[in-house]
Amino acid sequence: MSTEVNAIQFFSGFQVSDLWYLAKGAGGTIVISAIAISVGTILGCLFGWALSVSRWANMTLGSVLDVFRSVPLIIQLLLFFNFLPILGLPVGPFAAGTIVLIFYTAALVAQVARGGIEAVPSSMRNAARSLGMTYWQDIRYVVMPVGLRAVLPAWTGVALGVLKDSALVSVLGYIELLRASQILVTRTQEPFIILTIVGLFYFALSYPISKMTARLEQRWQYD
């Protein structure tokens, strides 16, 4: 039996060309996380601002965002993906995964952004206003420079978290790095080497950014 299976080349070993396939998978990871992080950050900053200015928003929006942080991402993905056909919307794995990741990112960033806004002492903002700055000038020239520095490490943490959590979109069937590796493992039956290579891919994406932020943070401490 087993000789027959081998005769039709059911399995074949790991080849160099498979690295290219993994690289394409890494491209998928980068695309989906880049969209989720950029859109999610913008949305999250808006949410964070709303949380910091209004108690009403804090109660309603805050508790909605809390759900995104209290339910596992994989359940959120499956829930949303299975909810779409109920509405009669044919949405593919990529779109569904991206939407969930965007809101997941936004919920995490909102907390960070709120922290950043609240990190600016109110006396400083009052001073800006009393110098004749408008509300938005105060936000742009006082809150942003001070707040952004305060929350950069936390934001990077969120962004890298989303980059790694994007691996879960593979559950829906979108071919990103992890899904690509599973497909290769099924064909080659060499899980150890492939998972190691995938680990290196993720490491290469995540490690430089985390090190860079750590260095930036250290430099800013002396300013």
Binding site: K164, A167, L178, P191, F192, L195, Y202, F203, S206
Partner: peptide
């Protein structure tokens, strides 16, 4: 390694990688 790779990959490693 723990901080820079997805938790799911780490799980797969213990699950399938060690099978090697």
């Amino acid at each position: 390694i723990a901080r820079n790779t997805p938790a799911l990959l780490q799980l797969f490693f213990f699950g399938f990688g060690l099978g090697a």
